[in-house]
């Protein structure tokens, strides 16, 4: 310290190199993220169709949330709320299947007593569906479950005599929703399994040893040791999956037959997309729905932040950092 104070001219400020190095990210961020984000807010107060340049105040939000006098506004409102319903249904449905499956696999693969062989292979195998492009997955399942009797599943069921006529899996509201839930779980359970496994591996093995010495059963160990300690990871999985679920787009958008979209799979993101890609475009509705989705997502983000800052943990005040100078 004394040396540097003696020769102040020799101080080289490396900070500016740091700024130069991080500048590209911020420039790109400003162009491609910040500006579109701000513009979305602006657009949400502007008109639709042939009135794209007019300011309409909160009208877009009003129509989406509460409807209005005209049939146009009422129809928009009902499609908005039904797409919320679809979003939540698809997310909850896929999350339950996904979580049960992942938890089971994570516990089995990390259990020291079972010692499953080839866990490395299985980890890769479970993760693989996540690597396939959503477009291919949707296309593959659409082929398997095609509406007519030429689809693989339909022709099997017909051959076995389980059904009389071909069942329109893709066109049916519930059948298509359940299929999307299954596809989503299939694509994401590997990811969740890995997260939960790393959480379980982080638990001190001596706790498990103590439990087994005390004669705790498998189920007992799971419910009274694994689950409570796993809670933060669990919460993380829950919230990230929820945010991902709110923005679910690819599979619901792609999973249909012919040219028209499946209305019972219309999620928030699909609604935003279709309003945006409309001629003439409904930028106002699209942007307003995006803003509302942003608010919901941000609220959930705050929620996870609150949970992450653990209130129950003992508070350590690092006094020396404030008193040092």
């Amino acid at each position: 310290m004394e040396n540097t104070q003696a020769k102040p001219k020799k101080i080289v400020s490396y900070a500016k190199y740091g700024y130069i190095f991080i500048a590209p990210f911020f420039i790109v961020y400003a162009f491609f993220m910040l500006y579109p984000l701000i513009n979305t807010f602006i657009l949400s107060f502007k008109g639709n169709g042939s009135h794209l340049d007019e300011w309409v105040g909160f009208q877009n939000f009003q129509y989406l949330l509460f409807g209005g006098e005209s049939r146009n506004a009422r129809a928009l409102q009902s499609s908005y709320w039904s797409s919320w319903g679809n979003t939540l249904l698809l997310w909850v449905g896929n999350f339950i299947i996904q979580l049960v499956l992942s938890l089971l696999l994570a516990v089995w693969f990390s259990d020291v007593r079972i010692k499953l062989k080839g866990s490395g292979f299985f980890k890769v195998a479970f993760y693989l569906p996540n690597i396939i492009t959503a477009a291919s997955v949707a296309g593959m399942f659409a082929l398997l479950f095609a509406n007519n009797k030429y689809g693989a599943v339909n022709s099997l069921l017909l051959d076995w005599g389980w059904i009389e006529d071909a069942f329109p899996f893709l066109n049916g509201a519930w059948s298509s929703r359940i299929l999307v839930m299954i596809i989503q779980s299939w694509m994401w359970f590997g990811n969740t399994t890995l997260l939960l496994m790393s959480g379980i591996f982080g638990i001190d093995p001596s706790i498990y040893e103590a439990a087994s010495i005390d004669g705790s059963s498998g189920a007992n160990t799971f419910f009274h040791i694994t689950m409570p300690i796993l809670k933060p990871i669990f919460l993380y999985v829950f919230i990230t999956s929820m945010i991902g679920g709110l923005q679910m787009f690819d599979i619901p958008y792609l999973f249909h037959e012919g040219n028209s979209l499946n209305n019972s799979l219309k999620t928030q993101a699909v609604l935003i997309y279709t309003n945006f890609h409309q001629t003439p475009a409904n930028y106002g509705y699209s942007a307003a729905a995006s803003v509302l989705l942003f608010i919901v997502t941000a609220a959930l983000g705050m929620f996870i932040y609150r949970f992450n800052t653990d209130n129950t943990a003992p508070v350590k005040k690092k006094k020396h950092t404030t008193e040092g100078k």
Partner: peptide, 26 residues
């Protein structure tokens, strides 16, 4: 199907159609 029930009535289907047009073209 659109919502959950199979076999809409003719009126339902026409209403559904008009709603789709109304919401897309303000």
């Amino acid at each position: 199907t659109d919502v959950s029930d199979w076999g809409s009535t003719k009126e339902d289907a026409i209403n559904w159609f008009k709603d789709q047009i109304a919401k897309d073209y303000p």
